[in-house]
């Protein structure tokens, strides 16, 4: 059953790390929104899907990738902020269940709009030689992308952690995540802070989406559903609300998923189920996740 050479192992590991990086980028969006609104943004996977279409059409209409991709990121940010304003903002003081249902509604709406507008048939994502070129290291052959993805992810993570922990905006975000009302008393504009959070999460989803499209160059309107669920699981594994945790959860899920399929090839069909089994185990044995905060406060 286990029949793997060292080279093959490294190859799978590289694949797992790059898949994990993509999960990590999307998981950050879930965890940030949860942190600030205590809401699972079910539309996040669909925002990721939309990003791949924005990039597709950008290149389709003849824009070079270095223009199409930044435009994709901007459009995705606007979409993410738009969803927040349209579907969540007016429900801020409503019971949690209302806003959750609104999130599910937003998700279905985006998916079905995409089917109507783009058609249900998969489209081929334009691949860029620059990213997809295969390089050989010893007997291992990997796409450049396999290295680019984790590097981009780590750079973005460092930038994000700096923003959250060292800047005034980040301080406001941390304050709002604990106590909306008191943050208002400090003169913090809650709406703008929440908007920024959605913008950042969507930008990361857009970058993840572009790299996803380059790695798996076939896009379709429901492609966001499964990665969306898995990245939510990654965020839970890492401890929802914790950004570093989401990244660790993403890597963990990506690597173990690839390795499971590589080692137990008979289980290939259960690949997606694996993530959910992990979710159940985490919820049973460590509901706060790997980095979950243990809150000890004196009152």
């Amino acid at each position: 059953m286990i029949n793997m050479t060292w080279e093959m192992f490294l190859q799978h590991l590289a694949n797992g790390i790059s898949l994990g990086s993509l999960y990590a980028l999307i998981a950050i969006g879930y965890t940030m929104v949860y942190g600030i609104l205590r809401l699972i943004n079910f539309a996040h996977g669909d925002i990721f899907m939309m990003a791949t279409y924005f990039a597709f059409f950008g290149v389709f209409f003849g824009l070079p990738w270095y223009i199409a991709f930044p435009i994709t990121i901007i459009l995705t940010i606007l979409l993410g902020m738009g969803v927040e304003i349209a579907a969540y903002r007016s429900l801020r003081d409503a019971p949690k269940i209302s806003i959750m249902i609104s999130a599910i509604g937003a998700s279905f709406l985006i998916e079905n709009l995409a089917i109507v507008i783009f058609g249900g048939r998969p489209k081929a994502f334009p691949t860029e030689e620059l990213f997809t070129k295969v390089v050989y290291i010893g007997n291992i052959s990997v796409q450049r992308l396999t290295f680019i993805i984790p590097i981009v992810t780590i750079i973005l993570l460092v930038m994000l952690l700096y923003l959250i922990n060292k800047t005034k905006t980040g301080m406001a975000m941390r304050a709002v995540s604990k106590d909306h009302e008191t943050a208002k008393l400090m003169g913090v504009n809650i709406d703008r802070t929440i908007s920024t959070t959605f913008g950042i999460g969507s930008a990361l989803a857009a970058i993840g989406g572009i790299m996803w499209g380059l790695k798996f160059p076939q896009i379709q309107p429901l492609m966001g559903v499964m990665p969306g669920l898995k990245c939510f699981i990654a965020a839970v594994i890492g401890g929802i609300g914790n950004i570093t945790g989401a990244v660790i959860g993403g890597f963990f899920l990506g690597v173990s998923e690839i390795m499971l399929v590589a080692i137990f090839q008979g289980l290939t069909g259960y690949r997606d189920a694996f993530a959910f089994i992990i979710l159940i185990l985490v919820l049973l044995f460590k509901p706060t996740g790997i980095m979950g905060e243990k809150i000890s406060e004196k009152v």
Partner: peptide, 25 residues
């Protein structure tokens, strides 16, 4: 400025960050 009932400091921020947040605007 209102000092709210029950203090409502931000437990996840440092003391200095809490003070800086007071001067946020």
């Amino acid at each position: 400025t209102l000092v709210p009932e029950g203090r409502r400091i931000f437990p996840n921020l440092t003391v200095l960050e809490n003070l800086k947040l007071g001067a946020y605007f």
